[in-house]
Design a protein around this nucleic acid. Sequence first.
DNA 1: GGATAATATATACATATGTAATTTGAAATG
DNA 2: CATTTCAAATTACATATGTATATATTATCC
Lengths: 309, 309
Amino acid sequence: MDRAEKEFEENLMAKIAWYYYLENMTQQSIADLLGISRMRVIKLLDKARESGIVQFQIRANPSKRIELEQALIQKYNLKDIYIVPTNPNSEEVNETIAKAAAMYISNRIPDNCFVNFGYGDTPSRTLNHLATNVDSTVSYVSLTGGVRYYLPNTQSNIFNAKLYLMPSPLLASSQEMAEAMKNEASIQEISSMIKLASMTIVGIGSMSEDATIIKSSILTQNDFILLRMQGAVGDLLSHFIDKDGNIIDTEIDSRLISTPLPLLRELNNVIGVAAGDSKILAINATLKGKYLDILITDESTAQKLLDLE
Amino acid sequence: MDRAEKEFEENLMAKIAWYYYLENMTQQSIADLLGISRMRVIKLLDKARESGIVQFQIRANPSKRIELEQALIQKYNLKDIYIVPTNPNSEEVNETIAKAAAMYISNRIPDNCFVNFGYGDTPSRTLNHLATNVDSTVSYVSLTGGVRYYLPNTQSNIFNAKLYLMPSPLLASSQEMAEAMKNEASIQEISSMIKLASMTIVGIGSMSEDATIIKSSILTQNDFILLRMQGAVGDLLSHFIDKDGNIIDTEIDSRLISTPLPLLRELNNVIGVAAGDSKILAINATLKGKYLDILITDESTAQKLLDLE
DNA sequence: GGATAATATATACATATGTAATTTGAAATG
DNA sequence: CATTTCAAATTACATATGTATATATTATCC
């Protein structure tokens, strides 16, 4: 399909979506009106949803929070919280809350702003959704090394973001190496951008075997066992923390190329995006450590957080 | 229904909408999950769409404009244009383009900003949609007198805007009276706010019998005949203009309490929202007069504008 | 120019959705 | 306490949507 055809199809999708969702026409009448088959209307509607040409937004009324939200805001002294319904079937919690995060952020993003993002599956999914969600140009800045594969799918045709990635691995081979890298001009540059961002998206890592940091072979099962013995309940930007949110000082941490947690705590609008049973303790620790301003999670996780202690 | 029940229902709506639109669950499975009847799911989905809890957004890719858009931007030297599909059945063009305008504006609105709006059916509809569209607090400032009945339906539960209305009629009984009113502190105050707004929404009036200004009995059919004889093709903020967009200096104009057109021309991001056969000449005149930065209209109107001359 | 993909259409069918009429049930009223 | 009222559930049905398959219609490639 060449450029002209693609444009034509995109306009067709937008038109169909408009008639279907905004004018409440049936697929058949749209097909008749545009002189195409109903089958094609169905397919193009699918594609329009898929590609982000049509978007659905669910707006919660901030003045009418459910008790659960209110309670968690109080418990952890949060600036805001966004709780989405738990999908009883789907195992894709991360996808669900990433959608929510993108929705939340896209409604609050200033024009031409900078947004930091952390390492992990959820932040990367959020970025992908944001790519198709946001009209204005946004600059995304990585908070850690090792994220070069997390690019939003650039084939998405509605994508006008700039990416600034730390040109380094997440974990250096030695402390000296890490220090040397952190002193590189290119990394220093990114580090200085971090402080200017108006929003920060971070995931929260659990200590379970399916943690991204294990699956991506950056740490081993043995590392994990050791960390657990030292009291780790999860990680924030790959810094492992104990149940109260205090950083656990390990050899691994000294080799990390990642934004220090004290700096993270100082940033504005730090949004944690995390859900799932395995992450409860990690989220709790993160919130106790006062690293987040805003939490995005699902109902079941939220309830379990509230029931803790 | 008391407050608590209303909150409960709203949360239910948000939840149902989430499951339906974001998780693609069927109405039946949502009903089962939540332990309610499918009927109720249908009704609450309706209500959620109605009340703005669910929103649909159609994103056009600015880099892939259709020729029509490109051509009109060139013809009239516009900053931007948004053309929506023409609904062949519906007579509610105004409603359609008001939706489009709200969608366009809500994606570009800064936080805590000021938005001016003009007199007319389309601006008022746009305001109504914006009320349920925008999360951040926005201040709306009227560009003319006589708009006190144009309040967005304040029963809309998601509405956190401030309204600043000129406390005066649109048309004073005499020129002296108009001058006196314009010198009132309360009106001066609004006038000074107008210059600070980051966006301005105006409608464009036609010279047909169903013009709002006739229907609201501010002008009579006779006034209209007279104006037509003097070359009027339509009005902008109730200032009547000729086919080239020049203001027509009449007795009526001197009694008007409305933002002067030279000031309108200087404002940033002036968005004209208008469509329909009866308005073609008026829109053309407005665009020739360089009063607008952005035009929101429908496809049929856009095509006819391009075919003019 | 004929074979080969790649898409769109046509058709038929299963499922999902929306509407209308009736019944149930629980709160509000006298 | 019976009665009214209203929202929700139930039921049945018409319509709309989605899927699967076969067929037609283009492009594409050698």
